[in-house]
Write a protein that binds this DNA or RNA. Structure first.
Lengths: 233, 233
DNA sequence: CGGCGGCAATCGTCTGACACTTGGATGGAG
DNA sequence: CTCCATCCAAGTGTCAGACGATTGCCGCCG
């Protein structure tokens, strides 16, 4: 094993978690024991634990019943990590707006069909709540509701990975363009598209939802590309 | 600000990186300065830095020219994080083999078409190198080459996000089923599919590549599902 | 029986010290 | 003048010890 002791230790524990030797929910030895077991100082142990914690592999609590517990990363955790990574890659111009939207097409168009087929009544209700009236709400609320609509639709497919992967993509786009001045009629067009999608999902019309989503994403792509050109001069 | 000091500090620095205030490549103050600036001990600073480092937001080196430098996460970093997350979600049975393969379909089938359109001669050569002869190589080598073939194909699309997202999916499947006993003729079928895909990409036949990839993934799905049923009894 | 205070376990934080790594500066040999 | 070995300075890496903060439990007292 090479590298600093904290990295070696983190790698060792990490491997034990990944291999299932340390089951989710189980408790790691306390910091003094780890320190003694591996023959390193407690600071070194703590640095290794911080490393694991920031990857959501463990969770640490204080108090008499405290300690470090193996935790299963949630959809939200994974999604958040992916979002920061994609944000930075986009900022470094290694990823373009067109590439982001192209991936959304690949994922969200079939997802709309799946959602139309598998949605529950409760999910349909969630979808309705995520609609908005562009004439009444402020920019902040519309921009948040816009994300929610797509999020709920992804969730209704029943495949959690779809949400993990796709949510970061549109969150990156939304935080980048949410504040900019959108073209005239953009938000009302979005609201119309969402309403249409809602109705098609309600009717379980998978083919219709697929077509509508494709058109909706085409609208978004056009608007985003236009805003992107403007912001770059 | 709530929570432990190391978390607050990590969040503060993290926000400065995400906002662009700390540019990629720039150097953070050394640990003593950070300690003084934020009024915390050096151990606390170090725990915050380990946290950021394990998210690939900074990179720390030793020596006189050492320190912590803001770093842009690479495709490999992101991909690796996603892989561990998906591995754990799959282990916790929150994600099924079918769902993993369904996502591969969504992403890799169109990717094959894109690769056929945009591939360079060099990438075609990489693709050829990633083929294998099931009669000659051992299980270990075939299993690694199988991954490489799909990886190279994704890379040839020119969209780095496609690789980031898709590579973890098939790596998870490969590490899970790579050691198991595959059905008779599985590997030679895979080799034939790869050879066919290579030829279609060479001929820049996008539609053909799409069809071939769809069939190839159908083969894989069948084999994986069968192995999955066996391993569960 | 219920509230309340102490108690123990554990993490959180600070201080100070020293070892290790690295790259440049220095100085002598050829 | 060039080249190589050596020393030095700036950082991170690691350890030991101490004390504070938090939390849940247990026993005491009303």
């Amino acid at each position: 094993m090479t590298g600093p002791a904290y990295a070696v230790l983190a790698g060792t524990i990490r491997a034990r978690i990944l291999s299932g030797e340390l089951a989710p929910g189980s408790r790691l030895p306390n910091e003094q024991e780890l320190s003694a077991d591996f023959g390193v100082g407690r600071s070194t142990v703590r640095e290794a634990l911080r490393s694991l914690a920031s990857q959501d592999l463990i969770q640490t609590t204080r108090g008499v019943s405290g300690g470090s517990f193996v935790s299963v990363p949630t959809v939200g955790h994974l999604s958040a990590h992916l979002e920061t990574g994609v944000t930075l890659m986009a900022a470094a111009e290694r990823v373009t707006v067109g590439q982001l939207m192209s991936l959304r097409h690949l994922l969200e168009v079939p997802a709309a069909g799946e959602a139309a087929r598998h949605r529950t009544d409760e999910q349909l209700e969630d979808l309705r709540r995520a609609e908005f009236d562009p004439a009444e709400s402020t920019g902040e609320a519309t921009y948040s509701a816009n994300q929610d609509f797509h999020l709920v639709l992804l969730r209704a497919t029943g495949n959690p990975l779809l949400e993990v992967i796709t949510a970061p993509l549109f969150r990156v786009l939304a935080t980048r363009f949410g504040r900019d001045h959108a073209p005239d009629g953009f938000w009302s067009c979005v609201a119309d598209d969402h309403a249409e999608l809602h109705d098609l999902v309600a009717a379980r019309d998978a083919d219709g939802a697929i077509t509508a989503m494709r058109r909706h994403l085409d609208h978004l792509t056009g608007a985003y590309l236009q805003m992107d050109r403007l912001s770059r001069g």
